[in-house]
Nucleic acid binder design. Structure first.
Lengths: 334, 334
DNA sequence: GAGTGCTATGAAAACGTTTTCAAAGCGGCT
DNA sequence: AGCCGCTTTGAAAACGTTTTCATAGCACTC
């Protein structure tokens, strides 16, 4: 590996001068600059980032913490983050936490020492105090999708409104008895979608019936039996709002196995606009989150924070960015 | 940030001793060790990885290069890689290359200078000489899924055999005219699946008819029209083998829209056992690759290479690890 | 009692940068 | 001639580790 001294020797100057040229300082003679650049090219020199990072106190690296990259929404988010980071000269470290505090803790410790420049956290839980300590200790942090009102930057969607819109659409379409396939309630976005569901019912003068709310027990597949039971009861709904697309797919399978037609006998609407949702039969109506753009926004925000911290410019107060959702109507609703 | 000298002062010893204790050297007095550990704990010390990496000439970081993390198989692979790396003290950098040489090149250059310890490359193309130069230059590299016979470690499945098994199963089930929904031929695994398809036909005395081979034009959706056309021609097949599950889903949609019953009128079999495949109606028969395990195997192999390079132990010759596939029969085949 | 070997420790060099400080060179001014 | 200010450059310190080398202490052996 050639280092800065080799380049200096080749160009007949000192290491300081090479450093100055390569980091774009202007107080260097044109001719010298030319020689240095030529020498650097000739030796195929590229600076050692570890040494640079050590000296500068930063690594140009950010960490993306997700529950699991296999979950439907995170690959797209990760692409947004990574594309944006790359364009700004940052590298992304991927952390699957499985929502396990020990794993998160290990990453945080490890990453602290790495001089990781900042975190995008999409795996926050209400009681994740080890994550809270990150921004309390002054690390740049942006929360993604899961937000609990803390004084920290965040990128989210208005889940209440989005769910409201979906349910409202069903009601306007003439549906009277709308069931809800509800994910883990401790996750804020599911809680919000639940609230939006209730609000839409209330605003349209429909009763809220707890028996129409299917609570996830263990995993997405639990909705298979829950749906079957509900449909066979005397409470058969004319529509089901699923709080995520995979849930909607399971619901549709259950309905299909009960011999019900979608949307003839019952409408189904999902949430997330996962890739799968346009592929199944019938194509699923759903609420679309701008996942890629959310990743982009989070990365931009984080990088801005990191830079402003380095520049010692006065920090702006943290703020929350609410991204727009779209209601995408396909053929699973009438 | 507290550093090793602070700990040394606190413990009343020299920095060397602290370093020795913390990196587990044995030639240090019990009592001294105790004092050092106590001081380290008291000061909440953790070593600066950049400094360590600079000194040691390694970063404990590996890079995972994928075409796009959004592609069906990569999230699972990424989990396998990341879990394994974490357990061995390595951190994973995620690189979406979009199969764009410029992006790959940028990453390689960047990562070279980072003293990235090694690469897992799942985005290799036949002409990726910039990637070839990685192992030619002595970087530890493991290829994943795409392999062209180069002298380098690789983790793959036997795509010829797997496709053979799938097609053979269809033939044994009485299918006589089997179509193929074939992905980009320049990718080795698609070429191999094609070869396996031909071999199975040949071994069973069935003719190979080029008109039954649907070639992807632009994207997965191109199979929608290709399938429709084929089905309406006088060549209507009694089964379709799709070289990936998303292709199978598109094929099924086309068949459904033509009013054909699956598997009554026509059988469909896929490849990959993507999450989606068990959810759709009817659940898709498919070939399962052990994606998670492939990620694990690639990471283990890479880490072994890295370690043996550091130990200066004589390098083993590169080898190829072939993982087993399973034929998973669901309800899309009769 | 001197030599030997072993353990435990510290000082200092090294890893490859960036940046501070000092100084050299030079033109222009009094 | 002396001084000032500007541009350009190099020497050296610093970032936080690990590791080499040297040495001190101590128990044995002859």
């Amino acid at each position: 590996m050639t280092n800065i001294k080799d380049v200096a020797k080749q160009a007949g100057v000192s290491a300081s001068t090479v450093s100055r040229v390569l980091s774009g300082k202007n107080c260097v003679n044109r001719e010298t600059r030319r020689k240095v650049l030529e020498a650097a090219r000739a030796l195929d020199y590229s600076p050692n980032v570890l040494a640079k990072g050590l000296k500068m106190g930063r690594s140009n690296t950010i960490a993306l913490m997700v529950p699991s990259i296999e979950n439907e929404i995170f690959p797209t988010i990760a692409r947004g983050v990574e594309d944006t980071a790359r364009k700004s000269g940052y590298t992304v470290i991927l952390c699957n936490t499985y929502e396990d505090v020990a794993v998160e803790q290990a990453y945080i410790n490890k990453l602290r020492t790495r001089w990781i420049d900042g975190f995008i956290v999409a795996s926050m839980l209400p009681n994740s105090d080890h994550i809270r300590s990150l921004w309390e200790d002054g690390f740049p942090v942006v929360l993604l999708s899961r937000y609990y009102g803390d004084p920290v930057d965040a990128v989210i969607v208005d889940n209440v409104q989005a769910a409201y819109d979906a349910v409202n659409y069903l009601i306007r379409g003439g549906h009277k008895r709308i069931a809800l396939a509800l994910g883990r309630k401790e996750l804020p976005f599911y809680a919000d979608r639940w609230a939006g569901y209730r609000a839409a019912l209330a605003d349209n003068g429909l009763p809220y019936d707890e028996r129409l709310v299917l609570h996830e027990t263990n995993g997405t597949n639990s909705f298979y039996h829950l749906t079957k039971e509900l449909v066979k009861s005397d409470l058969r709904p004319d529509a089901i709002f699923a709080t995520s697309d995979p849930k909607a797919v399971v619901v549709m399978r259950a309905l299909h196995d009960c011999g019900l037609r979608i949307p003839g006998d019952i409408s189904v609407i999902g949430f997330d606009n996962a890739y799968i949702s346009s592929m199944i039969e019938p194509p699923l109506s759903t609420v679309s989150q701008p996942l890629y753009e959310m990743g982009v926004a989070a990365a931009k925000r984080l990088i801005r924070r990191i830079r402003s911290r380095e520049d010692k410019t006065p920090a702006e107060p943290p703020s929350v960015e609410v991204m727009p959702t779209d209601l995408i109507i396909r053929r699973s609703t009438r």
